[in-house]
Design a protein around this nucleic acid. Structure first.
Length: 743
DNA sequence: ACGGCTATAACC
DNA sequence: TGGTTATAG
């Protein structure tokens, strides 16, 4: 798993910054009266006081630990303040913490390349900043050293008998005879101290940091002195550090690999690895892991700090542990059924009363099952159909959250996700292979909450078909009863920035509209060129996505309302092929530019529309005829419309445009800027995508600055080397049009 | 059959 | 490739 990347004589300055009990700090900022008190953040308060996921340092003094239950925490520390994780849509909502993390990242990114390693951790490459400082204003010549920097811990600095620790640090920083690497680290100390103070000042959060020559050592160091302190690993103290470092403390070695090292190789410290030749380690753990191990034993780790401020994927999930599993036969029902049969078999009881009781039990069960769907309290259900409803209910919640997050990512960072993946865990109580895993499934991601919900549910059904397997129809009815779902999650990945052309055009308009674009621009945009410049025909026509099998028969559940629906509008076979080949083309590397605007429109605008307007989507036959029509027109489409639509979608209000009405009319002949869509306007909006390049008033172009004009011109005649392009694009657009079914 | 919810990366 | 597995906080 870890990949080898040797690099000797590493003179970089790398920092790892780790927020102190981050969730607690976020809650304390919200409720300042909690500051200084033993505090813990807890999620799901129903069962034994909920599970702790973050513990303040004050509370840790009392022995409160992560992964305690709320009640346990109260036992060891009665005065502990328990704050609940916010709940939205029946699940924990971490968005407050994610946003707080972004605040921090935007500050830490100021002095060098910055990699967001998790919600509360970043790596910084401060080499350039340190070299610059060394050249311009070296610490050795500074009169005073910042107080925060003086509080640093420098590994290997001998602080003996009551000597003034800060004074020792000051001397270390000031040393003129230090080697170049130590001097660089001295600069790193000052820079990181300053960054940490800025973080504190601007966000009220404290953090700890490690400063070293590579990521591995910086990470190691950041955890050594917490909270609110920083630790430095000079080159000279690396060996001493690793020689005694328990091997499990090393990142990546906290799991099975670390256990294996201990058990199979008898190695208990990182330094203990030194005795093995590289070949031996490779032989045992594979070429990559082997070299990696050999290197870390020597403190070598060439991993670069990636310039990435934003996450690579978004996900939303929920577990339904044990008793709460989304399962077929709930305990309560079994219990009641037993009672019922006991009563029935008891002769002295009046038959009429028996029936009344049974009826009452049935109603109770029914109520519970419905109630559960309403507020998530009960997991009672009895048939596959009802499990389906529960799954659908939760998937809808998860997809809603995911969609919301995708939309803000699009808004704030101008990025689009291309793959939707569904994960689930399930159990089968009766069957032989009960430990069989529920397969995860993915498909192209279409923007828009309803579409994501629909697709996710289809993915679930595809997974379920595989998971349950097909054992005949009716005879097996009873075998289907013993299964349940213990976790569900949906995630969006393959997130790429909108092409730079679009971005620079967007920036031009940014100047004209008011504050629509938010501050967090990622350095990821740099990747855009690379993405776009990749040769487009590289891959042969092979499929990019394994298709969810679209034409499988429905599963027969015992007595069944078959809740597994057909998954796609029934296009003819050729059309389906077109669609899928489009998908593989589209998602090859990045995407075809023309795909953007349908995404933007059908996605985020739709999100802003009210729910009752959602049923405006076209029905299936309309969709099909429109699809065919577009197939016919494809050669006329040149991609122009997508520019226009893109502009519209950048408008500061939900539906309107920052372009003037005149502009809209000129360009599209449709006024799409009213604040809500009527059915007609919806139609107009759709039709707008069909604009022919010739329909655009040339004067529109002339209003733009020349460099933008050039960009657009280049954009209008793209993909010369790829005559097939138009066909594929056309299909893709139809794909985005595909009607959302009810959900 | 309670440690929940995310996220990343390597492997095949 | 997508899907699985390991890892971490």
């Amino acid at each position: 798993m870890p990949v080898a990347k040797p690099e000797s004589s590493d003179s970089r300055v790398i920092a790892h910054v780790d927020m102190d009990c981050f969730y607690v700090q976020v809650e304390q900022r919200k409720q300042p009266q909690l500051r200084g008190l033993p505090t813990a953040v807890v999620q799901y308060n129903e069962w034994k006081g909920g599970a702790l996921i973050a513990v303040s340092y004050e509370a840790r003094k009392f022995g409160v630990k992560r992964s305690m239950r709320g009640e346990e925490a109260k036992e060891v520390c009665p005065q502990v303040q328990l704050v609940q994780v916010p709940v939205a849509r029946g699940k924990a909502d971490l968005s407050g913490y994610r946003n707080a993390g972004s605040e921090v990242v935007s500050i830490l990114a100021r002095r060098g390349r910055c990699e967001r390693a998790s919600i509360d951790e970043v790596y910084l490459d401060l080499t350039d900043a340190a070299e610059m400082m060394l050249a311009d204003n070296p610490p050795q010549g500074m009169e005073t050293i910042d107080e925060e920097a003086l509080k640093s811990h420098i590994l290997g600095l001998n602080n003996e008998d009551g000597s003034d620790v800060k004074e020792n640090v000051r001397k270390w920083i000031h040393r003129h005879n230090a080697d170049h690497r130590d001097k660089l680290l001295a600069c790193g100390i000052l820079i990181v101290a300053e960054l940490r103070m800025q973080v504190l000042k601007e966000t009220e959060f404290t953090c700890s940091a490690g400063i070293a020559h590579n990521k591995m050592l910086a990470k190691l160091a950041s955890g050594m002195n917490k909270p609110a302190q920083q630790t430095v690993v000079p080159f000279s103290s690396v060996k001493g550090l690793l020689d005694t470092l328990p091997i499990r403390k090393m990142k990546q070695l906290g799991g099975k690999l670390g256990i294996s090292l201990q058990m199979d190789m008898g190695v208990n410290t990182v330094g203990g690895l030194l005795q093995f030749p590289e070949e031996k380690l490779q032989e045992r753990y594979g070429i990559n892991t082997g070299t990696w191990l050999w290197n870390i034993a020597r403190g070598i780790s060439g991993e670069e700090v990636e310039g990435r401020l934003l996450p690579k994927s978004h996900g939303s999930g929920k577990t339904f542990p044990g008793p709460r599993a989304l399962k077929t036969v709930p305990a309560v029902r079994v219990f009641l059924n037993k009672k019922c049969s006991m009563i029935l078999s008891c002769h002295e009881v009046n038959v009429l009363i028996s029936f009344a009781i049974i009826l009452a039990c049935r109603i109770l069960c029914k109520l519970k099952s419905i109630f559960w769907v309403g507020n998530g309290k009960f997991s009672a259900a009895k048939t596959g159909a009802e499990i389906g409803e529960m799954v659908q209910h939760w998937l809808n919640q998860l997809c809603e959250e995911l969609s919301e997050r995708l939309c803000s990512d699009l808004d704030q960072n101008k990025r689009i996700a291309h793959t939707l993946t569904l994960h689930a865990r399930a159990y089968k109580s009766s069957d032989s292979d009960s430990q069989k895993k529920f397969p995860s499934k993915s498909c192209p991601l279409r923007y828009g909450t309803a579409k994501i919900q629909e697709d996710a549910f289809n993915l679930f059904q595809a997974g379920l078909r595989e998971y349950i397997g097909f054992y005949g129809g009716k005879t097996q009815g009873s075998h289907c009863s013993g299964w349940g779902i213990t976790s569900l999650s949906v995630s969006a990945s393959k997130i790429v920035p909108i092409p730079s052309g679009t971005c620079s055009i967007a920036k031009y308009f940014q100047g004209q509209s008011t504050s629509h674009f938010s501050s967090m621009q990622s350095s990821d945009n740099l990747n855009t060129e690379a993405t776009l410049s990749l040769p487009s025909g590289v891959r042969s026509g092979s499929e990019c996505y394994s298709e969810v099998n679209l034409s499988e028969p429905k599963i027969d559940f015992p007595k069944e309302e078959s809740w597994i629906k057909d998954t796609v509008p029934d296009l003819d076979l050729q059309e389906q092929k077109d669609l899928s080949s489009t998908l593989s083309e589209k998602t090859q590397y990045g995407f075809i530019q023309e795909d953007i605007s349908p995404l933007l429109l059908s996605g985020c605008l739709e999100q802003n529309r009210s729910k009752q307007q959602r049923d405006l989507t076209k029905d299936e036959s309309q969709f099909k005829s429109e699809y065919k029509e577009r197939k016919g027109k494809r050669l006329k489409d040149k991609g122009t419309y997508s520019i226009i639509e893109l502009f519209k979608s950048y408008s500061p209000n939900p539906s309107g445009s920052f372009l003037s009405h005149e502009y809209n009319r000129t360009v599209g002949g449709t006024d799409a800027s009213s604040s809500s869509y009527s059915r007609d306007e919806e139609e107009g909006r759709r039709e707008a995508w069909g604009y022919n390049i010739d329909e655009i008033d040339p004067s529109v172009m002339e209003e733009l600055p020349t460099e933008i004009q050039d960009e657009i011109k280049a954009w209008m005649q793209p993909h010369k080397r790829r005559p097939n392009n138009m066909v594929k694009r056309s299909c893709t657009i139809s794909h985005y049009f595909s009607p959302s079914k009810k959900s």
